[in-house]
């Protein structure tokens, strides 16, 4: 395949450069000056895109809100008196009782302030205690969580170990199966499908035993009768829907007895392995309540 490539020689040898060099230099300089001038003018008298000019406001920033205005006012009074002295105006008589009252008021204010401070301190302490308690609770919760997590981790570890063991067992089985070339083709298929035929048969036998325990064949007369049911199972072993009878014994009490046996057998034993479960989740159950007399 041909990859396209730029031919730089063509660009270098083009007539573009030669055309520019052939023009008059004065004209070009004038043109460029005009353009630059126009841009300069445009920069100065450019368009104001903002429609509203923001209003400015001056703000005085205080560290704290002034709370002692009254005291300040009280402090200004003697200054005024001093000024009066300079003008030689007879000083007004200071009411002692008023002073006393003022002092008392100041003491009261101080006490109030102290009380307020104490309250604040107490509140702070209470808050600190509460915070401590909350922290303790949180710590306890955290500890619980940690313990739970540890438990979960242990369970997970156990499960993982089980899985490992199961996997090992499966792999061993697979190896054994691989070692035996004479095993039937069906078994090979099972291995390829990731399902152990031995396990499949084991669970089929367990299901068979559990249902057989509940079949009351006395309700099926004495003749050789056969029934067939199809069932779907959930991973829990419980039935998904009702058993579907595909072949009747033609004895109503027998059909009902077998259906009851299936229902009564819930939950049926099922494997944890998903692949194996898939093979057993839909089953056909063939019943011979009175056995095979011809065997």
């Amino acid at each position: 395949m041909n990859i396209p490539q730029f031919n730089f020689d063509l660009i270098r040898n083009s007539n573009l450069w030669t055309i520019i060099e052939s023009d008059d230099n004065l004209q070009a300089n004038l043109f460029s000056f005009l353009i630059h001038f126009a841009l300069f003018i445009f920069m100065i008298f450019s368009i104001q895109w903002q429609t509203k000019i923001p209003n400015f406001a001056e703000v005085e920033l205080w560290d704290a809100v002034p709370t002692q205005i009254k005291n300040k006012q009280l402090q200004t009074k003697p200054l005024k008196n001093k000024k009066i002295k300079k003008i030689k105006v007879t000083p007004p008589k200071i009411d002692k009782q008023q002073l006393k009252l003022n002092e008392e008021a100041e003491i009261k204010l101080k006490k109030k302030k102290n009380k307020a401070l104490e309250r604040k301190k107490k509140l702070k302490e209470i808050k600190k205690l509460q915070a401590k308690l909350l922290k303790q609770e949180e710590i306890e919760k955290l500890q619980d969580k940690v313990l739970e997590q540890e438990k979960l981790d242990k369970i997970k570890e156990k499960l993982l170990e089980q899985e490992r063991i199961e996997k090992l067992q499966d792999s061993l089985r697979d190896e054994e199966l691989k070692k035996k070339p004479t095993i039937a083709i069906e078994a090979d298929k099972e291995v390829l499908a990731g399902v152990s035929s031995g396990e499949l048969d084991r669970f089929k036998a367990l299901i068979q035993q559990k249902i057989q325990q509940n079949v009351n064949n006395q309700l099926c007369g004495l003749d050789r009768v056969e029934l067939e049911f199809e069932i779907s199972l959930m991973p829990t072993g419980d039935l998904l829907g009702e058993p579907k009878m595909t072949q009747s014994s033609k004895i109503a009490s027998c059909d009902a007895a077998v259906e009851r046996a299936i229902l009564q057998s819930q939950p049926l034993p099922l494997p944890k392995d998903k692949k194996l479960f898939k093979r057993l989740k839909d089953l056909k159950l063939k019943f011979h309540p009175n056995g095979h007399y011809d065997l």
Binding site: L200, K204, Q208, Q212, V215, N217, L283, L285, H292
Partner: peptide, 13 residues
């Protein structure tokens, strides 16, 4: 479908 054959029965009552 996997087929399971069940012969006889053990329930009586």
């Amino acid at each position: 479908l996997e087929v399971i054959e069940i012969l006889g029965g053990k329930a009586s009552e």
